[in-house]
Write a protein that binds this DNA or RNA. Structure first.
Lengths: 336, 336
DNA sequence: CTGAAAGCGCTTACAG
DNA sequence: CTGAAAGCGCTTACAG
């Protein structure tokens, strides 16, 4: 029972050569009608399945993409992973999944292991491994680093997304807007949310208000603590660099007995499932995931097939308006 | 550049046979100190990495576990996937990930593909594919179906978890408790939450209150709609079969301007990241994930190594008390 | 239209 | 301690 049936078993039983069985199955060469029929019958009867890797080793292709992620729980990764999977499976690629946490060593280990012939190429989404290091670790196996570097196939214009959010808040009369930027998103240089914030305030002749620019580590708990500080400093609205931290702002407000969105407006980023789970539903910056996945996979396939790296594609997020932003009461606007 | 270096390249350069290189690397046979040194030097210099599958095919082991999941977004799957990964990687197994959605055909396709020598065994977590069908699809490749069947290595005693939650609510004075059971969890027979609810009410000489037993499809939206009905029927507390639906109950209450937990107590299940993202933090039933993953992986390895299926292990969830349950005001208790 | 033989890149009896 | 040869299960020139 535990012993697999091989192509030679099928050949023997069908009274032909393995070569013919192989060709009948792959269709790469014509095979006589009657013989073909007999082969298919035997295949069905014996439940023969060609050993995938025996073929792969001969053809020098595994049809596997190694995908390295930090975790599988945070919604940003998870949503991306799922769209990338969908896109890859369109091209008959399966995913060899590596979950490395923030452990540098585990990341390196996995990348080396994957690139020893296990996969045709790897997609590096690990924050702890730079593109340069990834290339070195992967040797002759092509690797693309997902974001965070000039060589990434995709550049998400977070700055524009943040600008859209700020414009919307401004249009609703908010003048004292708190920012919770992300400490992990440092490409280019600093979190684009911070750049957007400063540029926006400058463009509107508002003071840059450094006491309202904060940076958090992406968790709800941190979002809550920072938001509490910001509320203490009199903000009427908060823009957070991800939904987790935005939801932390909800908690800070609720803990003070404030009403949302009347007493505090909040905007998040990512449009994770969280955004529609909380009350009121969170207005948030949505990433064009399909587009991102498509470009990423295209770049991956291109590299796997020996093409040169392509130009980075710029992608623009979009503000999804839900129920977490209210107009500032006229009294407050007059203050301006 | 794109051409890989083979063991024979290393052997030639080091002036030894491939056999010796192989043994030096695997350590399966003593190799002379000086020669060994030379081999290691050449390996480093040429950046040689043994082709994983060439070895695998010879050894009839791929060290890959095929894991089939419905999605990668819902937190229950995601948390489980991550713990299983951690456990598998302890045994040097990597995960070949298949995301099948609810599509029956895609699930079948992946299972067949995986079992054609790609993996040593598969872990089936797809609701749409029963254990019987999985076994048939996998042929000679061992497969274990994660939950939902008597042959599963794990049985989570959801009924006991629900009982704990009901007892806690009862102890806080709640008498009119609404239930939102899960439509997808039908093993054994019906959602154990429903069984627990009926048994509990019977044991406390309470009427079974069929108008308070509802079933939802696991989403926040559905949880909200059902909770709205239940609130209309005068419940003081709601027990939901997952956190998503529990959070839907939050939304229903907030939409009516009710205060949580004073005017409505809520308990969820799974202890997903959502539970600590909402306000007030959700009291919920926690699954012993580590234990589940450990047993599952043990069963997997056992089957892969030719062992017979083992007995199902029963695992008990545990109520995590946070801030979403309040005591019923004395006036209401008097009603009893 | 069909088959015998070589080869993918390794590992492992077998022989020394 | 070392190497030549066979073999893992396929595919694909090569020959007919």
């Amino acid at each position: 029972m535990r012993t697999r049936v091989r192509i030679s078993d099928v050949a023997r039983k069908a009274g032909v050569s393995p070569t013919t069985v192989s060709h009948a199955l792959s269709g790469k060469r014509p095979v006589g009608g009657e013989i073909k029929q007999r082969i298919f019958d035997v295949v069905r009867e014996m439940d023969y399945r060609p050993n995938f890797f025996a073929g792969a080793i001969r053809q020098q292709k595994t049809m596997l993409a190694g995908v390295l992620v930090k975790d599988c729980v945070s919604s940003a990764t998870t949503m991306l992973l799922e769209t990338i999977e969908a896109e890859l499976s369109l091209h008959n690629y399966e995913i060899l999944l590596g979950i490395a946490g923030l452990d540098v060593e585990k990341g390196r280990h996995l990348m080396k292991k994957f690139s020893s012939g296990m996969v045709d190429g790897v997609i590096n989404m690990l924050p702890q491994i730079s593109n340069t290091e990834a290339i070195q670790l992967c040797g002759s196996t092509p690797v693309i680093t997902h974001l965070r570097c000039p060589e990434s196939p995709i550049y998400i214009d977070f700055e524009d997304g943040a600008r859209q959010a700020l414009e919307y808040l401004w249009g609703c009369g908010h003048r004292r807007i708190g920012l919770i930027a992300s400490a992990t998103r440092r490409y280019p240089v600093v979190d684009p949310f911070l750049t957007a914030y400063r540029n926006f305030m400058a463009a509107h002749n508002a003071e840059s208000l450094p006491e309202l620019e904060m940076t958090g580590n992406d968790t709800t708990a941190e979002g809550r603590a920072i938001a509490d500080l910001l509320i203490g400093r009199g903000v009427t609205a908060i823009l957070a660099a991800n939904d987790q931290m935005a939801v932390g702002a909800y908690q800070a407000a609720y803990a003070r007995g404030m009403k949302l969105p009347e007493e505090l407006s909040v905007i998040g980023s990512d449009d994770s499932p969280l955004a529609t789970s909380v009350y009121p539903a969170l207005t948030t910056i949505q990433l064009p995931l399909r587009e991102i996945a498509r470009h990423t996979v295209e770049a991956f396939l291109n590299r796997v097939n020996g093409g040169a790296p392509r130009q980075t594609q710029v992608v623009i997020p979009r503000l999804i308006i839900r129920d977490s932003v209210a107009e500032v009461r006229s009294g407050t606007i007059a203050m301006e």
